[in-house]
Design a protein around this nucleic acid. Sequence first.
DNA 1: GGTAGACGTACATAT
DNA 2: TACGTCTACC
Length: 785
Amino acid sequence: MSDLLANLNAEQLAAVTLPDEPALILAGAGSGKTRVLTTRIAWLIQNGRVSPAGLLAVTFTNKAAKEMMTRLTSMLPINTRGMWIGTFHGLCNRMLRAHYRDAGLPQTFAILDSQDQLSALKRLLKSLNVDDEKYPAKNLQYFINNAKEQGLRPADVEANDDFNRRFVDLYAAYDVQCQREGVVDFAELLLRCYELLRYNDAIRQHYQHRFRHVLVDEFQDTNVLQYQWLKLLAGFGTQNPAAVFAVGDDDQSIYAFRGANVGNMRDFEHEFRVRHMIKLEQNYRSHGHILDSANHLIAHNARRLGKNLRTDAGHGEPVRVFQAGSDGQEASWLVEEIRDLIAQGMSRSEIAILYRSNAQSRVIEHALFSSGIAYRVYGGLRFFERAEVKHALAYLQLLENPRNDAAFGRVVNFPTRGIGARSLEALQDAARQYDCSLAEAVAYVPGKAGSSLGAFVRLIEQMRAETRRMTLPETVEYVTNTSGLITHYRGEKEGQDRIENLQELVTAAQAFVMEEGFGLDALASAIPVGRDGAQAVPALADGDQAQQVLDPEALPVVMTPLVAFLTHASLEAGDNQAQAGQDAVQMMTVHAAKGLEFNAVFITGLEEGLFPHENSAMEADGLEEERRLMYVAITRARERLYLSFAQSRVLHGQMRYHVRSRFFEELPETSLKWLQPPAQAYGGSPRRQQNESGWGRDWFKKPEDVPYSGTKPTGGMDTGNGYADAKRQAGSGLRIGQNVFHNKFGEGVITALEGEGADARANIKFKRHGAKWLALAVAKLDPID
DNA sequence: GGTAGACGTACATAT
DNA sequence: TACGTCTACC
């Protein structure tokens, strides 16, 4: 029985077993935060303090939510699927689906991701003939999201000048457009759900009665609206509020740019009269020098709740610091250090390379690639964000809701059907005139344009009819074929990859229906009845929501497999690379690294202007946020930490010269090991002298070993080197049977070789992309073992 | 009406 | 580098 509590330290134990009252847990990096949160849930359930249906736990990322469910399943024999554990967006979506009518939404509302939102805004600005020089869609997007994150509708936003008034008007027009099209953006999910709870007494009271415990992860990253939502849900100010258990770390607040408000922690403490505040300061992750560095650094921030991490682990290795002449040298040094680590037996996936912005990854990728070190880059274009996948999803969205103008506009002429800009303009005019959706406006367009448009609408209708009795994977496959997408890409020279992604989408649909418990034979567009033993659907069909919400065990599972899949695609953009699971060095931004840990961590590009980023200087609290970001980066490391900066680097196609980051002056000198004399920084002065540990490798003596001398006018990593690489490869003896690594296709094996010199070609069978002929003069191949 | 190529411009972090 | 817009030409 007490198994759950075994191996918790005193602080953790106290947190897990707190009474049913508001609590704030200040959990330092690596202090077992997730463990405390999940053990708390398990303990509450095991001791009968709450039923699985009576608690709600919310996180920010899908990854964290999944992790929580996995751990919970391993602690208790319960099915977590029906539980209210998820992200803010996921949980709000779920509530909105269950109460779509009260929320004023169509049952099958679609979710816009940031990209979709931006194009919706561009469309709006165009239709209103707004000068996009003066009112750029991006600024408008920022304005709207910012307002929504504060819980403000257009009428609530104060506009003190004409310029701002225009923004407010556009915000209002955007909301009207979304409503007409039946789409909802990320911020709207939260705001709409908040309003649902706020203005509908029956629903609010239902959830307030139902959730006796509300647990919040990463509380420091909540925005104003999320906090308000939590207060409503937890019945703040009512007779019988839920116990809110908030876990967070003010030192790790790094999302101010998307509305995170660290002040929520203080507000929570005061408003909820928190009597239980527990600090988890015992760090189980990092060696001493690493932790000292983190503590020293973060002490430079003024506004903190105050916390100091301690560890029982020894000092470990000092933090290695490298000053490179250029970004290319920095990358070469990384490669050498990583080789050493691998030689010492560290697995690649335990090594992470972190950087401030995604653009920095390329030079590093190139160096790793040339050295044949497998790597994986997080971020960038993810699976569900790819153009061809989005096209297929747009067709699927039209099956659910033909009024979705975003989806309609995306594919009405893709593949091309003779519906050009002229026809579309006529269609948009008609839609405006009759105040209807594009699909409905088709009837008003005369002539040839009208008939081509009509044919498209009939195509969609036909697809809807034909897929009525299909399962989700069948529907996806049918749509990719019948839409003409596959045929279209077959005719394109780079089309094969896109076709494979479309096939992958079918596979993803198969996996999805299995994982989500729909099963392989569930119809795509039918609401499953009795799933998870839930009986939520019939009540909804009656239109009697009160009945449904009064049943505390009812799980509002009202999504059809297709709607659920589309939702999944919007809320979880998926992974970006095929080689998951492969033992590869991990590359990502510091933001993306939050919540993760690695044996060895490289923090690169530690230069003024980059990290701290130059744009941060413009924001209030900007520098402190950068420092917290650096704190997050440092505390990712368990055993080894490496810091590097380059005096020159190619950025946006231009050579830039940087001074090393001020953060170096904020780290404890005794924990650092400079790998060579800290030379005169550009425009700055050296603070440090050589320390006792001596110099590292002398990189400056062997410029010929450095793939990037930084002398090229542009980044140009693909130019020039290709042919030289090919010669080197030819010389290095590629042979049949040889395993190779390709940047794009991943691992493969050579099955044939042909031609010589510039004509040399190899047939390679790739694990994930099938067989391909690649010209050695062009393809970048590296032998692997 | 479709399409390929040239040109200009911008670009931090992300559910 | 990557994407939107413009232009020439089919």
